[in-house]
Protein backbone atom coordinates (compact mmCIF):
# COMPACT_ATOMS: atom_id res chain seq x y z
CA UNK A 1 0.00 0.00 0.00
CA UNK A 2 1.03 3.61 -0.46
CA UNK A 3 1.99 5.71 2.52
CA UNK A 4 -0.77 7.62 4.25
CA UNK A 5 -1.24 10.53 6.64
CA UNK A 6 -4.38 11.65 8.47
CA UNK A 7 -5.88 15.05 7.89
CA UNK A 8 -8.90 16.81 9.37
CA UNK A 9 -10.29 20.31 9.86
CA UNK A 10 -9.74 21.93 13.24
CA UNK A 11 -13.14 22.55 14.81
CA UNK A 12 -12.59 26.09 16.11
CA UNK A 13 -11.07 27.68 13.03
CA UNK A 14 -11.55 25.11 10.27
CA UNK A 15 -7.85 25.04 9.39
CA UNK A 16 -6.54 21.94 7.61
CA UNK A 17 -4.43 19.99 10.08
CA UNK A 18 -2.41 16.77 10.10
CA UNK A 19 -2.01 14.16 12.83
CA UNK A 20 1.48 14.09 14.34
CA UNK A 21 3.43 11.39 16.15
CA UNK A 22 2.54 12.95 19.49
CA UNK A 23 -1.19 12.71 18.69
CA UNK A 24 -1.31 16.45 18.28
CA UNK A 25 -2.36 18.30 15.15
CA UNK A 26 -0.10 20.37 12.93
CA UNK A 27 -0.97 22.85 10.20
CA UNK A 28 2.08 21.56 8.33
CA UNK A 29 1.97 18.24 6.55
CA UNK A 30 5.75 18.00 7.03
CA UNK A 31 5.17 17.31 10.71
CA UNK A 32 2.65 14.53 10.18
CA UNK A 33 2.89 10.91 11.20
CA UNK A 34 3.15 8.61 8.17
CA UNK A 35 1.55 5.17 8.04
CA UNK A 36 3.26 2.48 5.99
CA UNK A 37 0.85 -0.38 6.71
CA UNK A 38 -2.89 -0.78 6.83
CA UNK A 39 -2.68 -1.45 10.55
CA UNK A 40 -0.82 1.82 11.08
CA UNK A 41 -3.42 3.67 9.04
CA UNK A 42 -6.28 2.17 11.01
CA UNK A 43 -4.63 2.95 14.34
CA UNK A 44 -4.01 6.54 13.29
CA UNK A 45 -7.56 6.95 12.08
CA UNK A 46 -8.80 5.62 15.44
CA UNK A 47 -6.68 8.23 17.23
CA UNK A 48 -8.05 10.89 14.93
CA UNK A 49 -11.59 9.78 15.63
CA UNK A 50 -10.90 10.21 19.34
CA UNK A 51 -9.80 13.76 18.62
CA UNK A 52 -12.99 14.30 16.66
CA UNK A 53 -15.03 12.95 19.57
CA UNK A 54 -13.10 15.33 21.84
CA UNK A 55 -14.14 18.20 19.52
CA UNK A 56 -10.60 19.08 18.49
CA UNK A 57 -11.08 18.23 14.82
CA UNK A 58 -13.85 17.51 12.32
CA UNK A 59 -14.16 14.79 9.67
CA UNK A 60 -10.73 13.10 9.80
CA UNK A 61 -9.67 10.97 6.83
CA UNK A 62 -6.65 9.24 5.32
CA UNK A 63 -4.62 10.83 2.53
CA UNK A 64 -2.33 8.91 0.19
CA UNK A 65 1.17 10.40 0.07
CA UNK A 66 4.52 9.72 -1.52
CA UNK A 67 7.70 10.28 0.43
CA UNK A 68 10.33 12.61 -0.95
CA UNK A 69 13.27 12.59 1.45
CA UNK A 70 10.83 11.48 4.16
CA UNK A 71 8.64 14.50 3.39
CA UNK A 72 5.07 13.39 2.73
CA UNK A 73 3.58 14.79 -0.47
CA UNK A 74 -0.08 14.11 -1.26
CA UNK A 75 -0.85 12.21 -4.45
CA UNK A 76 -4.02 14.02 -5.54
CA UNK A 77 -4.27 17.64 -6.70
CA UNK A 78 -6.95 18.28 -4.13
CA UNK A 79 -4.80 17.15 -1.22
CA UNK A 80 -1.75 18.95 -2.61
CA UNK A 81 -3.77 22.18 -2.61
CA UNK A 82 -5.12 21.46 0.84
CA UNK A 83 -1.61 20.90 2.18
CA UNK A 84 0.17 23.78 0.48
CA UNK A 85 -2.46 26.05 -1.10
CA UNK A 86 -3.81 28.48 -1.98
CA UNK A 87 -1.33 28.54 -4.85
CA UNK A 88 -2.12 32.20 -5.49
CA UNK A 89 -1.14 35.33 -3.64
CA UNK A 90 -4.50 36.61 -2.60
CA UNK A 91 -4.46 39.96 -4.33
CA UNK A 92 -2.20 42.81 -3.40
CA UNK A 93 -3.65 42.17 -0.04
CA UNK A 94 -1.28 39.70 1.48
CA UNK A 95 1.32 42.37 2.14
CA UNK A 96 -1.37 44.85 3.09
CA UNK A 97 -2.86 42.39 5.55
CA UNK A 98 0.45 41.69 7.19
CA UNK A 99 0.85 45.38 7.91
CA UNK A 100 -2.53 45.43 9.60
CA UNK A 101 -2.06 42.18 11.48
Amino acid sequence: MSHQVVTASRLRDGRAVYLTAGKTWSEKIAGSLVAATEDDSNAMLADAQEAADARIVVDPYLVDVTLDDALPTPVTMREKMRATGPSVTYSATQSEYRQVA
Partner: peptide, 11 residues
Protein backbone atom coordinates in the same frame (compact mmCIF):
# COMPACT_ATOMS: atom_id res chain seq x y z
CA UNK B 1 -28.42 27.52 7.04
CA UNK B 2 -26.23 30.44 8.09
CA UNK B 3 -23.91 30.37 5.09
CA UNK B 4 -20.95 28.84 6.91
CA UNK B 5 -19.12 26.19 4.86
CA UNK B 6 -16.12 24.10 5.83
CA UNK B 7 -13.79 24.47 2.84
CA UNK B 8 -10.32 23.21 1.95
CA UNK B 9 -8.39 25.49 4.31
CA UNK B 10 -10.91 27.07 6.69
CA UNK B 11 -14.52 27.99 7.27
Amino acid sequence: LNGLYLQLHAY
